[in-house]
């Protein structure tokens, strides 16, 4: 039996939660489980184009250690999930509007589209929903 699709809302910009979102989304996607990641609220700031790791990843007791020890880069995990599995990443259109950003302001090669919460929530009725 096919696994239920996984839907993840990432609202926190905290490094630990971004890292966990990258881990969960990539592993689910490569495990033949269709996965959608909806990036909203302040989490959108993490995906700004052109930041270095120190500027991008902040917050949480594990953040400094993960950077120091060379834990996989969260955005790179998401790229691998997209390349090797079925992963769709949606930028919350409200968060973009608040920032006065478009998809062009976000890191290349990650986002499939800008979208609204209503469509995402409707899609999520078909699977499991996790909010970070």
């Amino acid at each position: 039996m096919a696994a239920a699709p996984l839907f993840i809302v990432l609202a926190s910009p905290e490094h630990e939660k971004v890292q966990l979102a990258g881990m969960m989304a990539s592993v689910a996607a490569v495990s033949e489980r269709p996965t959608q990641l909806f990036v909203s609220m302040a989490a959108i700031l993490v995906f700004a184009k052109g930041l270095n790791a120190e500027a991008r990843y902040r917050g949480g007791a594990f953040s400094a250690e993960m950077l120091k020890k060379g834990a996989p880069d969260a955005l790179e995990l998401l790229r691998q999930g997209k390349m090797l599995g079925d992963l769709t990443i949606i930028a919350c259109s409200m968060a973009l509007d608040i920032q006065e950003w478009t998809l062009a302001d976000l890191e290349d090669g990650l986002f499939d589209e800008a979208g609204g919460l209503t469509k995402f929530m409707s899609d999520a009725e078909a699977g499991e929903l996790i909010v970070l």
Partner: peptide, 18 residues
């Protein structure tokens, strides 16, 4: 070796494609 979770799994999956 030296790669943290889920790095080894993703490296394996990339390798299986080749």
């Amino acid at each position: 070796r030296g790669s943290y979770c889920p790095g080894p799994l993703l490296e394996l999956i990339a390798g299986l494609k080749l």
